[in-house]
Nucleic acid binder design. Structure first.
Lengths: 231, 231
DNA sequence: TCAAAAGTGTTAGTGTTACACCCATGA
DNA sequence: TCATGGGTGTAACACTAACACTTTTGA
């Protein structure tokens, strides 16, 4: 008779992963939410989530779930918080590890999203959500704001080439306040992470504004060292 | 025949809680670690931890574990991160939710600590730790540093009455750098959260330095609004 | 009276904020 | 040519960092 391997004596928990997916479009910060076509809380809005499998790490789980919803890989992802109140899920005890993701909305696979009944909502006009998902969004937003203040993280949400005005609008959307155009671009340019191209984007204005891309090396450098955009 | 209640189909995980306990003593930032007298990794140093029970929330679990180790209740506690690599625990799959706690070392129940074979280590002279506990400490430290920069959190580590120099030393210990005495006290006093008493503490110097306590109302206010101590 | 640490004051320099003004272009 | 949004320049102000100087008291 073989001895069974030692295991800890402890309660076991089902562990969910919920993803707050941020995108930026039409000068608005948006959230990807799904309309649940399954119980519990069928017909309500919720974050995209799923259960963690025994053979994957937390970030692998989050990546898998995001891939299912958006078709994207190599997404910027950050763990935010674990929600673990005893009654947070009405069905049974479930812990939820909450991540936020930043995606370029243009790359998002709309057909795939539709198949999950997913919709983009402007952050300020989000619907009521199930369970503690509202708290999760609050937590993710405050984390995003803090992060964007000292790392050039906002760029994850913009296309490869973007105008200074788009970047400004993004920061205005994230912080829900206005920034002075001159001061903002001075600040950003002084970081030395942007490369100005000769192209101009017309449309928003008659004059058109220059497109920038960023210098990956300085970008990584600044990301590491940190800076301060808002005070 | 009664229908069984609906449950989710999902893998189950054992969930540990690990606590990084910070204290401040002799002008050093210290960590409370335990010398394990049980397997696995018996005889090595580790953080104080335990398993989450099915009927308690994460923060209740952390409080319980801290109470077991220190005899203290109403401790400042903050969730840091969940560690969930598949192989992080050699025995079996365990997720660990990591908290840090700030305690006043004078209030700590030494006898109780001794019964767990717990010891205080200066942060810079901590021993090698089991599993991913070193990473946990790194994460907690960087969280603590960030926090202490915009909330008056450091006070949780000092006794009721303390000198400006002790506060300065605490910040120097947290950030592992020196601060200018004049600039530091100007900055702190300008927050308006300190009340100067008439008492002086001798010992460190011949002149002695004034004891301060803090004004709870302004303290809470500033804590909410935030500020910036280091830049 | 001197050394050591507490505590105050001064100043140069840097960064932030507010706002005025110029530029390019489609209508 | 004018209205519009892009983009630049500048001056006032606030905050920071560095350091000199004064105070108190035990040895």
């Amino acid at each position: 008779m073989t001895e069974a391997p030692f295991t800890y004596q402890a309660d076991a928990f089902k562990v969910a992963i919920d993803c707050i997916v941020f995108g930026f479009d039409q000068n608005e910060l948006k959230l990807l939410l799904i309309h649940r076509n399954f119980e519990p809380a069928q017909g309500n809005w919720s974050l995209m989530g799923g259960f963690l499998s025994i053979n994957e790490s937390l970030s692998d789980g989050a990546k898998r779930i995001l891939y299912q919803l958006t078709g994207l890989q190599d997404i910027y992802l950050e763990q935010v918080y674990v929600f673990g109140d005893v009654d947070r899920d009405p069905v049974e005890r479930v812990l939820s590890v909450c991540f936020y993701a930043l995606i370029k909305i243009e790359d998002y696979d709309e057909a795939l999203g539709n198949s999950h009944d997913a919709h983009w909502f402007p952050v300020q006009q989000r619907p009521e959500l199930i369970f503690d998902h509202e708290q999760m969004i609050e937590a993710a937003l405050s984390r995003l704001r803090r992060r964007a203040g000292y790392q050039p993280i906002g760029f994850e949400l913009l296309p490869e080439k973007f105008t200074m005005m788009q970047l400004l609008n993004l920061y205005e959307a994230i912080y829900e306040r206005e920034f002075d155009v001159g001061n903002f671009s001075k600040k950003i340019l002084s970081l030395g992470i942007l490369v100005k191209t000769n192209e101009k984007l017309r449309g928003e204005s008659k004059k058109g504004s220059y497109l920038y891309s960023f210098d990956q090396a300085s970008y990584d450098n600044v990301k590491e060292k940190g800076f301060r955009i808002i005070g």
